[in-house]
Design a protein around this nucleic acid. Structure first.
Lengths: 205, 205
DNA sequence: GTCTATATTGAGATAGAC
DNA sequence: GTCTATCTCAATATAGAC
């Protein structure tokens, strides 16, 4: 502890960010007051304004740090091995598991993505979906080259997988007991590969 | 026009509901002020309190009417004909088309479903997904009986379809140009029936 | 850096005339 | 039923002492 005062500053700052995550998620940006925020963080109002300049500044800082975390995880999920189905499952479950760990932050992001601005400055979250689509494109493209995926509309395949991954995460976020989870992602990929239709002439079970 | 005054009352009431839909969707419940609401509807504040008793009352009335509309549409989509794939496509596209027509109301519902309470009273929207799952269960169940759908995890099939339908609607709601749409739903169902895997060597796990 | 105290604005809601 | 005028309260933000 070469610098005791600095440590305390960090503490107050960090506590404010935690409180902001909690309150913004539970009450929304507009309905969260600076008073409640500071009370929850155990600091007084001027402390917030000192570190973040305004309620908006605190919000943007929170979003920046949360999104950076997501990006860093995505960067670690780009090592692929095995059959295309296994690669897809590994990648999607990696995203899902991260969402579980970052549950609070992900919930906030969903509410911002779908929710109205509420007076909060706009924050671009769509780009994360674009990043996922890019990775899926690579995996499926290689799968076709390797002869493991049928020729077809590659974009549709990406969207089917992203849709199911998305639904799994959404269910995970819900208040009630989730009806689909991580294992659904695996079964979904397998089902997508095999198809659910009955072929009269070929393909015995 | 036996009662002229009544017609005018209805107008003010209706204009308030329209303004509420617009404002709640764009700014959220908490960030929408009664002043803006009344200004947009071209009435004064006491008019709002006269018809709806409070901001909360107006909100609940808006939600009730919107949800009732959704339910009525769902009830009209339960006549099935043709192959199971066609039934699924018909049903899902029916939901999608309805969502397009009710775009503003659906956007509000999404923002409420995912968003934080914002001080607004809770409104149960999850039940609509349950209703969709019920219908999909019937269609797929009959499909298995008719030998058009392979034996398997019926629940997973429902969730895959619901997930893709959901994603289509979400993309339709987004500000940017949607990258998937109504036609994706059709291709998705066909793809789900045929599968994307290469089956030359009869892979089985 | 952190406090107390306060300035200022706009919110939701209502009283009472017409 | 609809208005004007107003009440009350809580919001964001800051001034200035320590």
């Amino acid at each position: 502890m070469s610098d005791h005062s600095k440590t305390e500053h960090q503490d107050a700052r960090e506590r404010l960010l935690e409180a902001a995550l909690e309150q913004f998620t539970r009450c929304g940006y507009a309905a969260t007051s600076v008073r409640e925020l500071c009370q929850a963080a155990g600091v007084t109002k001027p402390v917030l304004y000192y570190y973040f300049k305004s309620k908006e500044g605190l919000y943007l800082q929170l979003m920046d740090e949360s999104y950076a975390l997501l990006e860093s995880v995505l960067a670690q999920l780009t090592r692929f091995e095995g059959h295309t189905a296994d690669r897809l499952i590994h990648f999607c479950c990696g995203i899902y598991d991260t969402a579980v760990v970052m549950k609070d932050k992900v919930r906030l992001m969903f509410s911002i993505y779908f929710g109205p601005p509420q007076g909060a400055p706009h924050y671009n979250l769509e780009r994360f979906y674009d990043r996922i689509l890019e990775v899926l494109d690579v995996i499926i493209g290689e799968g076709i080259e390797r002869g493991e995926v049928r020729q077809g509309n590659c974009s549709d395949m990406q969207w089917m997988i992203l849709s199911c991954l998305n639904a799994s995460v959404e269910e995970m976020l819900c208040e009630a007991e989730p009806r689909i989870d991580r294992t659904f992602i695996q079964r979904m990929v397998m089902m997508l590969f095999s198809g659910i239709g009955v072929k009269s002439t070929e393909r015995s079970r």
